[in-house]
Structures are given as C-alpha cells and as structure tokens.
Amino acid sequence: MTAQLPLQLSPRPGLQLDDYLPGPNAQVLSALKEMLGPTGGGQLYLSGTAGSGKTHLLVGLCELAEARGLSAVYLPMAEHHAWQPAMLDGLEAMDLIAIDDVHLLATETDWEAALFALYNRARDLQRRMLFSASQGPARLPLALPDLRSRLGWGSAYRLQALSDEDKVLLLQREAGRRGLTLDSGVSAYILRHCPRHTPALLQLLERLDHAALAAQRRLTLPFVREQIQLHEDSDGRLATVSPTAADKES
C-alpha cells in the first residue's frame, strides 16, 4: 500500500493560559492571573529551563490581557538579533509588557541599557511587567547590576518540571487535540522509554501523529514502539528498546 503523504499542518500549540497544565506551578498561574485583576499590577519574573513553559505563560497572559481590553506586547528576545534596541522605545504605553528570555541580552550593553530604560519608564507609569529567563534574577550574568536588581524587585518564581503523571495527562490532552487516542498503556510506555523532557515528548507526539496519518494506523503499543525504535535507529543510536516483561505487564 502506498503511504499517504501528510500535509505539514499541525494544530497551533495552545498558548492560552487555560491550556497550560500547571502541575506543580499552580501558584505561578494564579499569580499571573492576579496581575490582570483589579488589585493586580506590578511585576513578575519566571525562570526555568528551556521547555519549562515560560513562553506559553508569557504569550498566554498577553492573550488574556488583550481579551480583557488591555494592551499587551510580547517580545521574544531569542529574536533580538533581527531587531535594534530602539524596538523597546515607547512600549511603556502598553498595559502589559512581557519580555521572554531576558538572559539572551546578557552583556549586550545596548540592549541591557534599552531594557533598563524601558523598565524605569514602565515602572514610573505603574505598568505590568512580566519577564522570563533561564536563571533567577540574582544569577543573570547582566553587565548592568541596576537592571539585575530591578528584575528581582517583584516576585520571582522558578517553574518546576511536571511529574510523570502530569506528563501523561499532557500527552493525552495534546493527542486529543490532534484527534488521536493515546491510551494509558501507550503513554506509560513512552514515559518509560523516551527522554521525559516536555518539549521532547510533544515533538515525539507530533512525529507519531504524522507517522500514524501516513500509515493510516492508530497509536497502538506495537506501532508506537516501532516508531520509537525507527527514530532511534535513524539517529544513529543503538536501539536499546525491546519488549520486556515489564512492558507486557502494562
């Protein structure tokens, strides 16, 4: 049978706060929503490793702010090389300013100075500010200590990794969004045999989605196992996965 070629169209990853699976980060989610409330405001700083959900939270809060009639701007500093520091001029006019991956500006003195100036203008106007970075504010390797101390002025939260149980939930929910069914046995198999970093799991799900569509198969345990093994082989790694008693138990 000829394999079907799937179109490269994936559902847009949910970047609404309501789609965020908080797991151990429920307080962070609550603090973010509070920023938009009647007694809210101020600033919040989120740190976490790549893939811990920082971008989701920043974009999600901006979306929520706009849905409530507030103006919001989201700036991913991963793209700052394509811009100039003048990009930050006048942004204090926004009700919410969200700057993602602040650590990427470290030692770029022009950018640090521009962010520092924006911070001061925005704070004078009591704007809401949300920052994210890989490290906590005290550890940011910024050349401007003034900026570092200001970033640490509000509450700072470290995003905690989801538990394996939450990751199963996330996988199943994302599968559902793609119109797939991922039963608990298959989810557990994935968690046991694959890297458990959340973005890696979501990428795997995307691959499985494409493969299932191409092969016109459901996500059964034998199919998923075969796909994982194929991927490991194509990566040039040893295929360490083999069906075992433990797998059969599940």
């Binding site: 429920a26 307080q27 609550s30 603090a31 101020g42 504010p137 005290a138 101390s149 200001r150 640490g152 002025w153 509000g154 509450s155 700072a156 939260y157």
Partner: peptide
C-alpha cells in the same frame, strides 16, 4: 529590592 522581592514572594505563597 531583592529583600522586597523575597517579602512579596513569601506573602504571595501565604495568600495562595
């Protein structure tokens, strides 16, 4: 500033 940040974090935890 960091002292205030720590206080804010503690109070936020208590309220939550």
């Amino acid at each position: 500033r960091e002292l205030e940040g720590a206080l804010r974090r503690t109070v936020a935890n208590a309220r939550f």
